[in-house]
Simulated scan of single mutants.
Amino acid sequence: MTQSLRALLIASTAAAGMAFAGAASAETMKIGITQNNVGVDSYQTTYEKAFIEAADANADVETVVLDAGGDVARQIAQMEDLIQQEVDAIIIWPTNGEAVIPAVRKAHNAGIPVIVTNSNIAEQGFDFVKSFSGPDNITQGKRSAEIMCDKFKEMGIENEAQVVHITGQPGYTTAIERAKGFDDRLPEVCPNVTQIDKQPGDWNREKSQKVMEAFLVKYDDIDGVYAGDDNMGVGALNAAKAAGRDGIIFVGATNFAVGYEAMERGEYWGSIYQSPVDDAKAALKTAVAVLNGEEVPFLNYFDTPKITQDNMAEFDKPVF
């Protein structure tokens, strides 16, 4: 082989290698996520950490991780920023299920598939969404109602019990759906149980404690409390303990570590087991599947089983 031919082959091989490297980098999926409010509770903090770890473990994925801090206007601006960056897909954990729809539509019109995570947007925005990945919140509410009813029946008070209800943040789809599931199912399984009041706790333990304090002043007879998550449920429990009101059955959803610990102490009866790690991994997996051209269900739910003092030994203590 002549020197010039050898040089030509080396140059050609190098050029081919550069072209291949360019093609490989072009195949990297750039996925943006705008979250609801990472600072509001340990579930969202754990979700973000798990999402970043799952993305880092996938060599084909590059991520832009944003947090709206509970501010709808900021989340809309973040959606527009991700569109400008020409990401390949956007994952959104909506701050408000209706208010974000125009921004989701804008991404859809720009040819960017949108995956909604954890809490769905309102139904009128479904045409602009590729898939929802998360828990079935209406089913969670129904299961919480069943947990409470079963306990009332065990206690023999299913024909007279009175319940108060602490919901999540108003306008937030998870809060709306869990409340609906509970409100629809409780009369079906325990038709003589009365729900005497309902107030928002905004996913906040301190606010929920104040809501419960007001309930305790207003009502002499409260047999059960349903809270849209354990953070709020434990706030309500703390109010009852401080007031010396015993015998109240507390049921929540999204079993937090504080809820699990209160169950261990025998103070809190039951909840719905939901992992933020599973939630985060499912969202990323759904986005990757969409970008790979795979068929994914529009409602891509993962299971969230009932957990009570009776079966809690079957579940690991939550990490959030």
Results as ranks from 00 to 15, higher is better:
211 V>Y: 00
316 D>W: 01
257 A>N: 12
318 P>G: 08
309 Q>C: 01
239 A>H: 02
289 A>G: 03
278 D>N: 14
270 G>D: 07
236 A>E: 09
214 A>V: 13
282 A>T: 14
281 K>H: 12
270 G>L: 10
280 A>D: 04
207 K>E: 12
280 A>Y: 00
297 P>R: 05
298 F>Y: 15
248 I>A: 06
277 V>S: 11
297 P>K: 07
294 E>A: 11
319 V>I: 14
300 N>G: 07
280 A>V: 04
225 V>N: 09
301 Y>E: 12
265 R>H: 07
314 E>W: 08
252 G>C: 12
222 I>L: 08
315 F>V: 08
224 G>T: 05
243 A>W: 06
309 Q>V: 15
240 A>V: 07
263 M>L: 09
222 I>C: 06
307 I>W: 00
217 V>L: 14
313 A>D: 14
223 D>Y: 02
290 V>F: 05
239 A>G: 04
242 A>W: 05
237 L>P: 02
299 L>K: 13
252 G>N: 04
270 G>Q: 01
270 G>I: 09
205 R>P: 00
226 Y>Q: 02
260 Y>W: 14
275 S>V: 10
313 A>N: 13
206 E>N: 14
285 K>I: 04
235 G>E: 06
272 I>F: 00
257 A>C: 02
255 N>P: 02
303 D>L: 06
303 D>Q: 13
260 Y>C: 04
241 K>S: 13
216 L>A: 10
263 M>Q: 13
281 K>W: 01
320 F>Q: 11
271 S>L: 10
241 K>F: 02
294 E>P: 11
309 Q>Y: 00
278 D>E: 14
225 V>I: 15
231 N>D: 13
290 V>L: 09
212 M>V: 04
234 V>Y: 01
244 G>R: 11
229 D>Y: 08
217 V>I: 15
301 Y>D: 11
252 G>A: 12
244 G>I: 07
239 A>E: 00
278 D>R: 12
238 N>M: 14
222 I>S: 04
229 D>K: 05
205 R>V: 00
248 I>Y: 03
283 A>N: 04
219 Y>M: 03
239 A>M: 03
319 V>M: 10
260 Y>Q: 06
284 L>R: 03
266 G>F: 10
222 I>D: 01
310 D>C: 02
291 L>W: 04
221 D>S: 14
228 G>V: 00
288 V>Q: 07
309 Q>M: 15
310 D>Y: 10
